[in-house]
Amino acid sequence: MEITSATPPGPPPPRKTSRAGDRIFLGLSRGSGILLLVIMAAIAVFLTVRATSALSKNEGDFFTTFEWAANSTPPKFGIAVLAFGTVVSSLIAMLIAVPVAIGIALFISHYAPRKLAAPLSYVIDLLAAVPSIVYGLWGALFLVPHLGGLYTWLNDYFGWTGIFAYQGGAARSLFTIGILLAIMILPIVTSVSREVFLQAPKMHEEAALALGATRWEVIRMSVLPFGRSGVISASMLGLGRALGETMAVATVLSPSFTIGKSLLDPGGGTFAQNIASSFKESGEIGKDALIASGLVLFVLTLLVNGAARLIIARRKEYTA
């Protein structure tokens, strides 16, 4: 077979011109992308290196030890209590906040008269602007002293389950943290859900209406299916915030390295709270140990985000 040189006949192709603006923009956007990757890698490397040095000196099992004595010799620390406290308080927050947020978002987008909807969404957004230390103060000074009644009620009716047993004492428990976190993540979940519900296509709402659907049936048939993936990502955003919340938790909780049988038992801890509370008094190994726990929180948050993306991707085929 004969190989011919590939010079096509005809006029030469138009010369590729490059414009200064395009090149600058390309450089800027490519640079930002690379910078982001570099920062992520730097954080991961920093966390891993410091964490490894602490873990190599750890006398206890990192995952099952119920104490945090990273500054004693030999150091002994484990994240069991922190992982439990973080996950449980965030789950309680989700269970409370997500239904309420969906309700508020639907009310604003589909029920409230326009005159009420605008100020209401403004107030919700305002909740997000409150600094978390203020939530912490409010939680410690108002919520904790006023939750005794709710705790007693829960104990009376649901005490038999064990997880709602209440022995009296200050309401500085994971349950209170859950309530506080619920209020804190409410605005983000609400406003993202509201935006999604507002985008529900009019033509599907009209389709449902024309079939003789009531307002609730319109929402169930056309708005909720459309908004489902948006609500899931909104919830995950909220969960991410709840998992990492620091100051409010540190202000309200009375930390202890125990896992209570009841959600209403005082004590427990979360990753972020433990780092904030222990950092100042920590020595070299103590700080590295805290960084190791931070690495776990980092991975946990990544897993949550990954799970959310999976759920949303699976729903994609239905959102035309």
């Binding site: 033509m203 599907h204 389709a207 449902a208 048939m221 459309f226 035309a320």
Partner: peptide, 8 residues
């Protein structure tokens, strides 16, 4: 415009 419910 045809408007079948997309999730159904």
């Amino acid at each position: 415009r045809p408007n079948p419910f997309p999730t159904m």
